[in-house]
Design a binder for these strands. Structure first.
Lengths: 121, 121
DNA sequence: TGTCTATATTCCTTTACGGGTATATTGTTG
DNA sequence: CAACAATATACCCGTAAAGGAATATAGACA
C-alpha cells in the first residue's frame, strides 16, 4: 500500500473524522451525517474516495451501507491509523465526535449489524 | 498545530522524501537535488510549501540555505514524523534516498554547517 | 562593480479536489 | 407495481496544487 495515498486520504478534515470514528466501530452513512453534521452528498463522496483507495470497506445491510476499516490492513496503514488515534486524543472536534458516537450507540438500534464488532485500538 | 495541515504536507511524494531525509540531518537544497534527482524549482517550491506550514526551518550559511526539522515540534508532528520513519523502513525509494545521503555525508564537505547535528530518531 | 553560485519567485498550464444541486439507484414495504 | 428510505452518481463551479520555463535575488569574490 502506497504511503502517499494513505496521506492523501488523511489530508481532509471530513475524511479524517470519518476514519477516526471507524476506529471505534463500523458505521453507516446516516450515522456519519448525524455525528459530523455534514450533508449526505459530502459524506458519501468522501466515503467513495476512501473506498476507491482501499482505506475502508463496505457491506450492505438491507438499505444501509455499513462502512468499516479493512479487515486486513497493510502495516503502514495500521501504523498511521494508530498514530491518528493518538493524535486525536487532545483535539476538541474529534473528542466531540466520539461523544456523539457513544450517544448514538445507546439510542440507536438500527441497522442491526452495527456496533457488533470493535476494531483498531 | 493542525493535524490536517500536517497530512497535507505529507501527501506528496517529493515532500515525503524531503521530510524523511530531514529525519537524519539538516540539508541544503542542492543536496535534495542530488539525492532526489529532481529539478531545483521543484525542490525549492516544496521546501517553501513546508516552510510556510512550519514543517521545516531554514538557516542561511553563506550561499546555502540549510533546511531542518523544527527544533520545537508539536506532539502531533513529532508522532507523525516518527510514524513516517517507521513506515519508510521497508520502502525501496526511501531506502535508496538514505543510502545516497550516507554517500553524500562521506564525500561532501560543504557547506560546513551540515551534518553537525542529527535529529529525530 | 561585475560575475558566479545557490536558491527563490513569477507566470503559465493542467489536473485534482471540494462542495453544492439535482438526479439516479437499490432495496424495502405496502 | 408504487412509494419510500438510504445511498450513490453526474454535472457544475471555484480553487488549490503540481510542475515546467524563465527570471529574480542575495551573498561571495575577483
Amino acid at each position: 500500500m502506497d504511503l502517499v495515498q494513505i496521506y492523501q486520504c488523511f489530508c481532509n478534515r471530513t475524511r479524517l473524522r470519518i476514519l477516526h470514528l471507524l476506529g471505534q466501530s463500523p458505521l453507516c452513512v446516516c450515522h456519519f451525517q448525524t455525528i459530523l453534521g455534514e450533508p449526505q452528498v459530502k459524506i458519501s463522496k468522501h466515503l467513495a474516495y476512501l473506498r476507491e483507495r482501499n482505506l475502508v470497506e463496505v457491506e450492505r445491510e438491507q438499505n444501509w451501507m455499513i462502512y468499516s476499516l479493512p479487515k486486513k490492513r497493510a502495516p503502514e496503514l495500521e501504523r498511521n491509523l494508530k498514530c491518528l488515534q493518538d493524535c486525536t486524543q487532545s483535539d476538541r472536534i474529534f473528542a466531540r465526535d466520539l461523544k456523539k458516537l457513544v450517544l448514538l450507540r445507546k439510542n440507536c438500534c438500527e441497522p442491526g449489524a452495527l456496533f457488533r464488532k470493535t476494531q483498531a485500538r
